[in-house]
């Protein structure tokens, strides 16, 4: 029988420095409310000059391993979902492995933009289910501020830096990842793109002068894609599990923009009360947004043993990925720790 795989522990890391709407409003000649109305964001975290993608990933991973009561030598695979890794090569996952003292196991980065973390969950859970390894560290980590043109209003108001991580491991049958849905529509690949720096357009003085090493986005195209796919993929995943929306406790979407999430929810009649939104204080952190939000609701005690959650990512590619998880309270007992604290207060 195949081993079921689920989340044993979570962690997150947000850089200390924040960039507020007030600062951006002054820069772009708009009001803080104008930014909030269009994004649902009040502030974003920005990495310090000496912080790179692996630094945030390592901090989040350490916390996830601690919460999962997992020693480095137990990890059998490291996946870092990112589009802003430390280097083109080596993989940021290799740096994470070396620093954390994880044994000589498979370590690789996964490039699927804002869907990347869910893709990592799917790959990691299958590695466990098929017996390739027992535990997988999956991290979503981004330093988007280095790839955001801070003079371009539409980009600068959205993106922030951060990392989230989970340790995947075996859980009893009927728990963990119950169903998944993923896809890509590559004919629309130009909707979100960093044009220069790869083999198509190697970096040069000209590409830098033209700001082609920053992310570029067709806002309308992305909004329409995201509005369609968020609900469609969520409902498809629920259906694959043979469940209905009533069986789901929480939906954790990629934190792209509050307007996208609300429009998608309205279109599919998904109740907003079940949708986790933490954009206000964090902004859009691409592949890191889902694990950061998951860690937040878990430590807030909003997830209990047996709850069913849907994680749903969408973004560059254009791609999407969703996973339905039936929560199994892990050995680290984050939930029980929180309950104990609540009892003591």
């Amino acid at each position: 029988m195949r081993q079921s795989a689920g989340i044993l522990g979570t962690g997150a890391c947000l850089p200390e420095q924040v960039l507020t709407n007030l600062e951006l409003a002054e820069r772009f000649g708009v009001t803080p409310d104008w930014i909030f109305e269009r994004t649902g964001i009040v502030q974003r975290h920005i990495a310090a000059p000496e912080q790179a993608c692996s630094d945030l990933a390592i901090a989040a991973a350490r916390q996830a391993m601690e919460n999962a009561a997992t020693a480095p030598e137990e990890i059998g695979m490291v996946i870092v979902a990112t589009i802003t890794g430390d280097y083109t090569t080596p993989a940021t996952a290799a740096i994470v492995q070396g620093v954390l003292g994880i044994p000589a196991v498979a370590c690789f980065d996964l490039s699927a933009a804002c869907s990347g973390f869910v893709y990592g969950m799917i790959v990691g859970s299958h590695a466990i289910s098929c017996g390739f390894c027992n535990k997988v560290l999956v991290v979503g980590s981004e330093v988007l501020s280095r790839f955001t043109n801070q003079t371009d209003r539409d980009s600068a108001i959205l993106f922030g830096d951060g990392a989230g991580a989970v340790v995947l491991g075996g859980v009893p049958e009927g728990y963990g990842l119950l169903a998944t849905d993923a896809g890509t529509c590559g004919t629309e690949y130009q909707a979100i793109i960093i044009p220069a720096g790869g083999s198509r357009l190697p970096p040069s003085a000209e590409t830098i002068a033209a700001h082609l090493h920053y992310s570029h986005m067709d806002g309308n195209q992305v909004f329409m894609f995201a509005m369609r796919v968020l609900g469609n993929s969520t409902l498809r995943t629920i259906e694959k599990a043979g469940l209905s929306l009533d069986d789901i406790s929480l939906i954790i979407p990629h934190q792209a923009n509050r307007r996208i999430i609300e429009a998608a929810a309205g279109r599919m009649e998904l109740p907003l009360s079940k949708i986790v939104i933490n954009l206000e204080q964090i902004g859009n952190t691409s592949s890191a947004s889902i694990p950061i939000a998951l860690h937040g609701v878990l430590t807030d005690g909003r997830i209990r043993h047996g709850d069913r959650l849907v994680l749903t990512g969408f973004g560059g590619g254009v791609s999407w990925g969703s996973a339905l998880i039936r929560w199994h309270s892990p050995g680290s007992d984050q939930i029980h720790k929180k309950e104990k604290n609540d009892d003591n207060n």
Partner: peptide
Amino acid sequence: LDSLAQSELLVLAED
């Protein structure tokens, strides 16, 4: 209607 609201309208019209 700002650009996001127009995009929302187009998706609802498509549906």
